[in-house]
C-alpha cells in the first residue's frame, strides 16, 4: 500500500459512444429505462476497469447516468423542474432547471450506481454530488424571493443524499461547487451551505471548484468545511502556489492537485507532470497531497482520458520512487 501521492480523478469520464446513442434513444422514447440502465452499468464497468488497469488509487463511477451535473439532481429533487431549452454554446442546448418551490430531497439518487461501482473493485470509490450553491446558481430561481434561503434549503437536500451515500459505505464524498469560481464574493454563503451539506458525514469530504480566484479569496476559502480541496493547479497562477507556500495551508486539510489540463487535447509529458507534483510537494507532504487531472474528463475522448491518466500515473510513480514511497 502506498503512503503518499494517492491518485484520483475529479469525477466525470467521457461516455462511450454506445451510451451517448442510448441516452438519445431514451430521450426520444425509443429505449426503455431498464435498457438504458443496463448500458449505464456496462459503461460503469468499463470506467472502473480502466481506472484499475491504469492503477489509480481512489476511483469514481464516472457519472455514466448523468448529463448535466445540475439537471441530473434537478430531475430528482422536489421543488425543481427541468425548464426550456437554453443555449450552452455553438449549437449545443440544454434544458436549464428551474427552482420552483421549496426544494426537498425525496429518494436516493446516486446510491445505486455508486454501490454497483464499489461492488466491482476493492479500491475506494468516491460518491459524487453537485453542491448546493452550484445547484441554485446554475438554475432559474422562481420559487424563492431570497437566493440565500434557496441555497441553504438546497444544502439540506444535498445533505440527505450525502447521508445516504455515507450509510451505504462511501468512504469519500465529494461535493462540487464549480459555480463558485466566477462568484468568489459569495464564498461565505457557499461555506455556510457546505456546512449543512456535510453535516453528520463520517466519510472523508472533498470539494472541487474549478478555475476560481483563490488568491483573492485566501484565506477565507480554506474555511470551507471539507477535508480535501480538489484544485486545478496545472494552469493556476504562480501566485496561488506562492501564497500557499508562504502563508501556509491548514495542517488538517489535503489538496488534490490537478496536474493535467482536461480542456486540451494535447497529452502532457511525464516531465511536466513530475514538475507539477514537485510544485505540490513544496506546499504539502506526500500524505496530504493527492494527484489528479484538473477537472472532470467528460469533454475529452476515452483515449485522451486514458492517456492523460497514464501520464499522471507514470509521473506519480517516478516521484514516489525518488521519495522512496512504496
Amino acid at each position: 500500500m502506498t503512503t503518499g501521492l494517492l491518485t484520483t480523478t475529479v469525477g466525470s469520464f467521457p461516455k462511450p459512444p454506445y451510451l451517448q446513442k442510448a441516452r438519445n434513444a431514451f430521450a426520444s422514447g425509443k429505449l426503455s429505462r431498464e435498457e438504458l440502465s443496463e448500458l449505464e452499468q456496462q459503461a460503469t464497468r468499463e470506467v472502473i476497469a480502466l481506472q484499475e488497469e491504469i492503477g489509480l488509487d481512489i476511483l469514481v463511477d464516472g457519472e455514466m447516468a448523468r448529463g448535466d451535473m445540475v439537471v441530473f439532481f434537478a430531475e430528482h429533487f422536489a421543488g425543481m423542474e427541468v425548464g426550456g431549452l437554453v443555449r450552452s454554446y455553438g449549437n449545443r442546448y440544454y434544458h436549464k432547471p428551474v427552482v420552483k418551490g421549496p426544494v426537498r430531497w425525496q429518494e436516493p439518487i446516486t446510491v445505486d450506481l455508486w454501490r454497483y461501482a464499489q461492488s466491482l473493485t476493492d479500491k475506494p470509490v468516491k460518491g459524487m454530488l453537485t453542491g448546493p450553491y452550484t445547484m441554485v446558481e446554475w438554475s432559474f430561481l422562481e420559487g424563492y424571493d431570497d437566493f440565500r434561503q434557496a441555497v441553504l434549503e438546497m444544502a439540506r437536500a444535498v445533505n440527505y443524499e450525502a447521508l445516504e451515500l455515507d450509510r451505504a459505505g462511501a468512504p469519500f464524498i465529494q461535493i462540487d461547487e464549480p459555480a463558485l469560481s466566477t462568484r468568489m464574493e459569495d464564498i461565505d454563503l457557499a461555506i455556510e451551505a457546505m456546512a449543512i451539506a456535510t453535516e453528520g458525514l463520517t466519510a472523508k469530504t472533498a470539494t472541487h471548484i474549478c478555475y476560481g480566484d483563490f488568491v483573492s479569496a485566501y484565506p477565507r476559502f480554506l474555511d470551507m468545511p471539507v477535508k480535501q480541496f480538489d484544485l486545478e493547479m496545472a494552469n493556476s497562477s504562480h501566485d496561488l502556489v506562492e501564497l500557499l507556500k508562504t502563508e501556509g495551508f491548514p495542517e488538517d486539510k489535503e489538496i488534490a492537485w490537478g496536474v493535467v489540463d482536461v480542456h486540451s487535447h494535447e497529452i502532457e509529458s511525464v516531465d511536466d507532470v513530475v514538475a507539477e507534483i514537485k510544485r505540490g510537494l513544496e506546499v504539502l507532504p506526500p500524505e496530504r497531497l493527492y494527484i489528479d487531472p484538473d477537472c472532470g474528463l467528460k469533454t475529452r475522448t476515452w483515449d485522451e482520458s486514458a492517456d492523460k491518466l497514464r501520464v499522471i500515473m507514470e509521473g506519480v510513480r517516478k516521484v514516489r520512487a525518488e521519495l522512496g514511497i512504496e
Binding site: V86, R87, S88, Y89, G90, K96, W138, T182, S264
Partner: peptide
C-alpha cells in the same frame, strides 16, 4: 477553445 462568458452558464470561443 470554449470559455465561460462572464459568470453565465454560456460559453464562447
Amino acid at each position: 477553445g470554449l470559455i465561460r462568458w462572464f459568470d453565465t452558464n454560456m460559453y464562447y470561443r
